[in-house]
């Protein structure tokens, strides 16, 4: 086994060259190149994390905007509803008031008309009594020849008409 049989002749050379090579690897590669590679990996990880955080922030903002938009919409709808119901109520009230006024005017006119009618009826009735009394006096004179005073005839007619 050369590893053991040659050990006394070769150990110095092996140690010497291994220390040179391993020293070069440790200092130039381990301490020179490795940190740069790790730095670029760290920079990438940080960039990814930052971008993710920014995206998350943007999403939250968008959510917020959406929420406030929905709230605005609801408020506007409520306002519109309130306005329309107020307008409806006002219109109904106006209509009631106008109706009441018109009613009152109409009832005044009706009352006047009724009064005029009853007056006219009374006048007509009075006219009819006079005519009937005249006619009754004439008829009595013609039939019986008796002279009836107009006052007698009027009371007789009144009595008949009030009974009749």
């Amino acid at each position: 086994m050369p590893q053991i049989s040659q050990i006394l002749e070769t150990y110095a050379s092996q140690f010497f060259w291994l220390l040179i090579v391993f020293g070069l690897i440790y200092f130039t590669i381990g301490h020179g190149m490795l940190p740069k590679i790790e730095a670029s990996m760290d920079a990438r990880d940080r960039k990814i994390a930052d971008d993710l955080a920014a995206a998350e922030r943007a999403r939250a903002e968008a959510d917020n905007l959406g929420d406030s938009g929905a709230a605005d919409l609801t408020a506007a709808r409520n306002e519109a509803q309130a306005k329309s119901s107020a307008a409806k109520a006002k219109a109904a009230k106006d209509a009631d008031a106008r109706l009441a006024k018109a009613d009152a005017e109409v009832s005044i006119k009706v009352a006047a008309a009724e009064a005029a009618l009853s007056k006219a009826t009374a006048k007509a009735l009075a006219g009819i009594e006079a005519v009937a009394a005249d006619a009754a006096a004439d008829i009595v004179a013609k039939v019986s020849g008796a002279k009836v005073t107009p006052a007698q005839a009027a009371t007789a007619v009144k009595a008949v008409m009030s009974h009749g």
Binding site: E9, T10, A12, S13, Q14, F16, W17, L18, V21, L24, I25
Partner: peptide, 17 residues
């Protein structure tokens, strides 16, 4: 006084490096 000859072993270490 030490024999630190460049050997085939040293050569392969350099190749590894």
């Amino acid at each position: 006084g030490y024999d630190v000859s460049f050997t085939n072993s040293s050569l392969f270490m350099i190749l590894v490096l």
